[in-house]
Write a protein that binds this DNA or RNA. Structure first.
Lengths: 110, 110
DNA sequence: CTAACGTATCACCGCATGGTGATGTCAGCA
DNA sequence: TGCTGACATCACCATGCGGTGATACGTTAG
């Protein structure tokens, strides 16, 4: 069994909540390809600036994105390690589940 | 670039929403190790039966768990492929982001 | 120095969501 | 055949959350 890359499962839930939103997923997909600032994201998504700023705050607090001020602009870039942790956690769960399904492990009915 | 295992990103968001909940994550962790029926999960989590049934319905509709009736009991088991799809999607995003970060790709400010 | 711009924060509101009790359904047992 | 237990569904309600407009803050241009 591979040891999970995410030590705190409870914290992982918070990060998952941040990812589990259509607009934020769209933001992450865009940021995966290139670093962008808020105005770029406004163009790309068509969402209001305030709305985007709120979502970006959630992504920031979840540790999914990094900000890099550039003059009066702010570049947002994706943090690969955060996503890799999630992928590792879910992958480990899947591996455990696969072994369990293979062995048909089940607790007997009471 | 690896092609994502999850064809529909929008559908992936729904599955992520199902995973992004403390109680449901706890259920998934328990089910990863052994198949259980509802009464077992009531014991393990301490949550009310109705509440658990609602959460299990969400997990079922997200395609994360399978049900197997056994007399008047119902066994729940984790579906590894669903989790693997998620892990693949997030892993691909992370890989793309890592390449982007390495090349320092950014769109110029307008 | 001031104006304009990019971005963040705040307060507010309508709506969806999660937990709960009551009730329904189905299977097995006396 | 009625009864009990396992599980699902429904209706209800309080709470939180997402989107929005107003506004504040810092930065560059003129």
């Amino acid at each position: 069994m591979v040891m999970s890359a995410v030590g705190d499962v409870n914290g992982a839930v918070d990060v998952l909540k941040a990812v589990a939103d259509p607009l934020r997923m769209r933001i992450l997909t865009l940021l995966a390809r290139e670093a962008l600032c808020t105005s770029h994201l406004v163009e790309e998504t068509g969402a209001k600036q305030t709305n985007l700023s709120n979502h970006l705050k959630i992504l920031r607090e979840a540790g999914l994105v990094d900000t890099e001020p550039c003059g009066r602009f702010t570049y947002y870039k994706l943090r690969p390690d955060a996503l890799e942790s999630l992928a590792g956690l879910l992958g480990d769960l899947a591996a455990t589940a696969r072994a369990t399904a293979c062995a048909d492990t089940k607790r007997s009915c009471p």
